[in-house]
Amino acid sequence: MNWLTEVLGTQKPIIAMCHFPALPGDPSYDKQGGITKVVEEARRELLSLQEGGVDAIMFSNEFSLPYLTKVRTETVAAMARIIGQLMPEIKVPFGVNVLWDPAASLDLAVATGAKFVREIFTGVYASDFGLWNTNCGEVIRHQHAIGAENVKLLFNIVPEAAKYLGERSITEIARTTVFNNQPDALCVSGLTAGSETSLQTLQLVKEAVPGTIIFANTGVRLDNLEQQLSVADGAVVGTAFKADGVFHNRVDVQRVKAFMDRVRAFRANLK
């Protein structure tokens, strides 16, 4: 038995994204509505996802566009405030993702009791955000220094809107990432949020590191979930749960229910 059952309660789990609106300091922040409006929007999304039956939730500052690779204090403070206010209503395991700052994600996890984080922990990239460098050794030491050693680390090895600076195959990246860093899971993504994860890439990664949990990180939808979950050990889902499948829209609880009904049927057939 791997940690998925212990932490998330099931095999082939669906981690739903709860996307926070723009936060204080972000270019699109609604100063008139203020943090109260952000909390209410986040509450609406959380309750819709839980009513739809998802297995776990990942809170992220998805609308802090354009992203920073070292976030500011106000971002983490605002996210902690939001999650703290929602805590009495959170009924499923949850994780956090402070885009794109792994140390800040771990800080937020410790502050809120999150079970997992997803981040770009390794690699050097040419990206929409400039030259994107990482320091996994420093981050892992920080994890242990702040008492976050039990927080599960989901390594995104195909960053959205970025390309590895050196020419390396996905199988090379997967093997060395696992050997050097011992991640709790690898996340395989498409080009942007909502873009379908290549099934061939998922298969290559799964074959390269067969003992490692693999998540399909973007683009899992009602029409491809059986195909994606036949290879991946679980999925992170955001856009597919939004009204009309549009990234900027609110969560549509009926879409969530239809999706999770299919997931449960798929899981039942595995037994």
Score class of each variant (00 low, 15 high):
G123E: 09
T75Q: 13
G34H: 13
A22R: 12
L222N: 08
R44L: 12
G211S: 13
N180A: 09
H19A: 14
G113P: 02
Q11F: 00
T171Q: 14
S60I: 03
S60P: 01
K206Y: 10
N181C: 15
P183R: 08
P210C: 04
D107W: 01
E40T: 10
P66T: 14
G53F: 07
R118T: 00
I173C: 03
T122E: 08
L229R: 04
A243D: 13
T69W: 06
G52F: 03
K242Q: 10
D223P: 01
N156G: 11
V237G: 04
A265I: 10
C18I: 01
A258Y: 03
L8V: 07
K152Q: 07
L49C: 03
A185R: 13
P13V: 07
I173S: 04
K31A: 15
G219E: 09
T218M: 06
V188T: 12
G95Y: 05
L65H: 10
E89I: 09
L229S: 05
P21L: 01
F259R: 05
T197A: 01
V188M: 07
L65C: 12
F215S: 02
L8H: 05
H19L: 07
I120L: 06
Q32N: 14
F116N: 00
S198T: 05
V231Q: 12
R168N: 04
G245C: 10
G238P: 14
V253N: 02
D107T: 01
G52S: 15
V209E: 11
W100Y: 15
I140K: 12
C18G: 11
D244E: 11
N249S: 08
E160Y: 07
V124D: 14
P159E: 13
R168M: 14
I90V: 12
F59M: 05
V178W: 10
V7F: 03
G211A: 08
E51M: 06
V139Y: 04
I120S: 11
T218P: 04
V76K: 00
T75C: 09
K163R: 14
Q85A: 00
